[in-house]
Design a protein around this nucleic acid. Structure first.
Lengths: 348, 348
DNA sequence: TGTTAGCACTCTACCCAAGTGAGTGCTAAC
DNA sequence: GTTAGCACTCACTTGGGTAGAGTGCTAACA
């Protein structure tokens, strides 16, 4: 069967109507509501064909039709119109994002919150995966008799601390020497590179007295580096789904929220997603995502390199055009902002 | 009217039954289910009295009775039995809490998660309010041409960093002098004390060349100190309410989750709560808490001084005895754990 | 041959009425 | 003071009836 012009037009209209109302679309309503120039009977015939082709579904005989995942995919690929954000909305986004920037994490959380507010969907954002982040500074700073702060600074500007209890006595001088040795060894390496091989074994100092100290510190160093690789997941607008009729079913609402509760799984899904603006619809998603949901994500860069992601999750019936544009615009804004941090301006 | 022995016994039985079933309790059921030695008619008379006294309520004439907030208060104050946790549960809590301790925040989050798992309620925990935390160390560390890490270490072991962009040129030596001057001025003060007065104006260096640098840095210093006063709120078990029949109503579930979404308000409520194990029932709570909910919180200490809180929120119909015991035991465990951190063992 | 009007049929949603069951409140007897 | 008995109340369930939106098929039309 051929997906001719008229079928496409009908399908497009059905999808658009269903996205805005959430109600199954019938042939009569369609012909009355839109100027298609054909009668309900003809629409019915075409609908029947479209159903056979897998673009429409049916809950029961006498109900209207709803778009399938396949239909949404067609819609996104072929019909979706790039939606130009109104200037005031653009301004609002820029303003609210740049407003009171303090720390990367805070900005990301803020962005997620803003995104859910604008789209009325559930938003999330993950902080950049730091595996490509370059170590620039390692320092051990005495705190009191038996504890020391291990500070690791990366080129992106992220600083990681760890308060260590040491068994072995130390002096400030010794710590300085060790700091310099560590910095010398690891400066310029990415965190991943630094973690390659057996760090603890490979790190040697010539001075015997310091070997014990190093032995005490190195496992903590490794652990802290590993923790730098963690990404944080922020979410907002969890309760937005209650405004959607499809989530009036308490069981569905519960499943949705429980899915979002599993942050580890969700983080994994987001990290593994491809770069750029990505839309995945219904069954295209991993099995851990509740049915009839779509995800839209975009990538942002820190320092032109590290990749974080920001996006939304909602019912397959979502305003793909608008939402995608907002997310895209937001990720561009984040890119611009994060060009400036990391201790290195653009010429670095 | 007198709240005599028999009335108390009946009330107690009604409360216990309602807590476990969630269904309004009728006189006939009560007399059949429990060995009270009196007939349904007598129970009815007593129930009627108890209702008049404000301990029971009624949704409609032919429904059974439910305890009022006042009844729960009586129950908690007079009937609630200290529930001795079984040893295996105690062991589970201790094990899971001490397991892989890395950072205070992580432990707190973990505790909240464990608490919701055990109680099947929504749990939360706030990190300690740091206003009594004592500054022990301030340091400015050069990062590259135009940025510097400001590091503030407190006695509790909390370390705060901030990457600063400086307008004014600097040398490592100058930063060291400034670090020492700052440490000299603020070491031993609590964060609150440090923030008193106009820090920026009051901080002076003799060396003129450094005044510009100080001017550049001090506002950031203040901001970072202020951020150290923030408390973090962690929650878990948000979806646990879906297992409770009273939250089958989508509107109630929504209100509950929206309340929890307002983290700022919730944090304020928790911070302002009294110390020790506190139970607040229904209307005793602030207006920002959804109706028919009870909160149980306990305090934990870090370094014997800083106060954090951990607790649960759930329907007024909750197992007060068991839940209170679990929270109490957990807070004791946290106390024990946090005695050891902070760079100062108990004799400090 | 494609399009359309007409019609029978289907299924959900809603309303209404009757019946059921758990519970109350009152009264009179013990 | 306690209890049995009884009338009454109210939510909940069940079943029938109806309206409304929709489909699928067929026959007529352009």
């Amino acid at each position: 069967m051929d997906l001719n012009e008229r079928k496409l037009k009908i399908l497009h209209t059905i999808i658009a109507d269903f996205i805005s109302t959430g109600e199954p679309v019938g042939s009569r309503t369609l012909s009355k509501k839109y100027e298609l120039g054909i009668s309900p009977a003809t629409i019915r015939n075409e609908m029947s064909d479209l159903e056979e082709m897998g673009f429409l579904t049916h809950t029961h005989t006498s109900a209207g039709r709803m778009p399938s995942d396949k239909a949404y995919r067609l819609y996104v690929n072929n019909f979706m119109q790039k939606y130009e954000l109104p200037n005031e909305e653009k301004k609002e986004i820029s303003d609210k994002l740049t407003g009171n920037f303090v720390e990367l994490d805070e900005t990301i959380r803020h962005a997620a919150s803003l995104l859910s507010e604008i789209t009325n969907l559930t938003s999330f954002a993950i902080t950049p995966k730091q595996d490509e982040d370059i170590l620039s500074y390692i320092r051990l700073i005495p705190l009191d008799n038996n504890s020391v702060v291990l500070m690791i600074v990366a080129k992106s500007g992220r600083v990681m601390n760890n308060v260590l209890k040491l068994e072995v006595p130390y002096t400030e001088e010794k710590l300085n020497i060790l700091s310099k040795a560590l910095t010398y060894d690891y400066k310029g390496k990415t965190i991943c590179e630094a973690l390659e091989g057996d760090i603890i074994k490979n790190f040697n100092t010539d001075i015997i007295a310091m070997q014990f100290l190093a032995k005490d510190i190195m496992p903590n160093f490794v652990r802290t580096l590993e923790r730098m690789l963690d990404v944080n997941l922020y979410m907002d607008g969890l309760t937005n789904i209650f405004a959607l009729p499809e989530y009036n079913d308490i069981y569905k609402a519960k499943s949705f929220l429980e899915m979002l509760n599993n942050k580890d799984e969700l983080t994994k899904i987001l990290v593994n997603r491809e770069h750029g603006v990505i839309i995945t619809i219904g069954d295209e998603n991993s099995a851990d995502i509740v049915p009839d949901c779509s995800l839209i994500t975009a990538t942002y860069h820190v320092d032109g390199k590290l990749l974080g992601k920001i996006g939304v999750i909602g019912p397959t019936r979502m305003k793909y055009g608008e939402v995608t544009s907002v997310i895209e615009y937001m990720s561009e804004n984040l890119n611009d902002m994060f060009k400036l941090i990391g201790g290195s301006k653009k010429d670095d």
